[in-house]
Structure formats: C-alpha cells, structure tokens
Amino acid sequence: MAHQPGVAVMEAGALEFRAAEVEDTDERRESRETVGTPFADDPRMTCRDVNVYYGDNHAIKNVSLDIGREQVLAMIGPSGCGKSTFLRALNRMNDTIDGCRMTGEIRLDGQDIYAKDMDVVPLRALVGMVFQKPNPFPKSIFDNIAYGVRIHGLAESKSEIEGIVEHSLKRAGLWEEVNDRLDQPGTGLSGGQQQRLCIARTIAVSPEVILMDEPCSALDPIATAKVEDLINELGQDYTIAIVTHSMQQAARVSQRTAYFHLGDLLEVGPTDQIFTNPIHPLTEDYITGRFG
C-alpha cells in the first residue's frame, strides 16, 4: 500500500481549505459536536449515540461513528479520553468489566451487536482484539493459535488445524521465524514476535474486524515497524480500528483518523487532512503537541 500521508507535507488543496476555515473562536473551541466526516458510505460497523459509563463516570459521550470496510481507522487523543473504552465497546469486551454500562447502538454489517439475542461468543470471533501488552497464553506457539480454532470448532481434522496455524502465522509474518519451533512456549518469543503471535491468533478465527489497542506501545522501534507493516497489509482484507498515542503511527497505517477528547468524539476525517488541516481547534492543539 503506497498510501503514506506525511504530517509535514502540506498539499496545495489543504492550504486553500485552511484559508476557508472559520477562525479559532471560543465558541468553536467549546463545541463538543463531532466535526468532519464521521460517516462512511459502505460501513462495516456503525455506532450511533454510544454512551459508556463506569458507575457514575461517563467515559464515552454520545459517539456516532462509522468504521469503513477494509479500512484502517486510527483513534487518537489524550490518555484517559476513552479510546480503549470505545474500542472495547465494539466487541463487547466491556461486558467483562463490573459496573460498566452502555447505551446506544452498534451494528456489525447491519446487525445490532447489543441485541438481546446476540451471542458474544461468535461476535468476538468476528471482531477480534489485540492488546497493548502482548498476552500470549502460556502454551506452545502452535496451541496459542489453535486455541481459538478449537473452541469455535473451525477445523474438522488435525491437518486442517495445522493448515490454519500455518496460514495465520504466514499472514502475521511470523512463519519464517518460528516454523521450526512451533512446539515451544509462546511466552519465550521476543515482545514483537509475541505481538505478531497475538495478531496471528486473532486472524486464525477468521475475523472481519480487528481492534488494536496501542499494539506497539510495549515494543521497540524495529518491532514496531514490523507490526506497522503488518497492519498496513492486513488493512487490505480486514477492517481495522487501532488506538494509538503516536501520531506518526496513525499517519503511517490509517486512512481515517478519529480524535477523542474527554469522552467526546471531536473530529473524524481522512488521516492526511486531520494531520494537516484539522477543523476543531482542540484537534489542532493535540496534533501540534500543545497538549497530549
């Protein structure tokens, strides 16, 4: 994918756009309405008026957002602004947290994932998740990947499982590095390899959407580059939502970017535009590093 918008590059069109912008007034600065383009033509997931509460803490406020098909959506914002919370709402991982409530509607391919008769087990196979810290199971590399395949009954035979394991590892770019030691513990790999193992494990259950919560924040720069390449490549076949605190990373891997601020979704737009021509003054403050 040659789509590599740079933060520093300002296109001529963008400059004109900026000129047309309204000035930075207090009124605009106070506004918590989402500006930009939160909706997509052919969305994989649609979120409408989503609110999430932890007890009395209103962590996500009235967020409406589409996640486009076979696209990478980056979510940025100061820490504590609710990015992880929103991401966990997308595969109902918030269900596992005591005292966490949600209102609003989230649909996957038109189906309401919070509907009464929705079963979270297949949902979480369809909407996979990769965490901040690599968390391979204390099992062999092979079993780490076969785990999901087995619990969902995705394979009829041992050779079919082996095929899925190999395919997933190849997809995650890890096959060359580990194919001679599949029976060794996954916890023995390096941090970057562990994170790619977790991605492979997610791919193995054939998801449509992959959620990633700061997947590179525990990795060194070289491992980060590998995972970013992988995300770029996976973005062609999967719908990906990635939380990141690195704007360079958002620029490198995503096509759309959403800016969260204290529980509000302030701005959504094409990544290159968000980084060159933010509409909301607070987005601009954030990407120019005035706070973070």
């Binding site: 596992t96 196979a125 968390n135 785990y147 494990r201």
Partner: peptide, 24 residues
C-alpha cells in the same frame, strides 16, 4: 491480560478457566 486474551477470542467463561487460567 490472559483472561482478556481468551475472552477476546470468543471463549466462554468456563473455557477461559479450563483452557487458559487453570493451565497457567
């Protein structure tokens, strides 16, 4: 994180306990 990993793959609670937590 181990339980989260299992839940995120669509494990039920008892699968998580039986196949991930107890072996760990």
């Amino acid at each position: 994180a181990m339980r989260d990993g299992a839940y995120a793959l669509g494990s039920t609670r008892s699968e998580t306990i039986k196949k991930v937590v107890i072996p760990a």
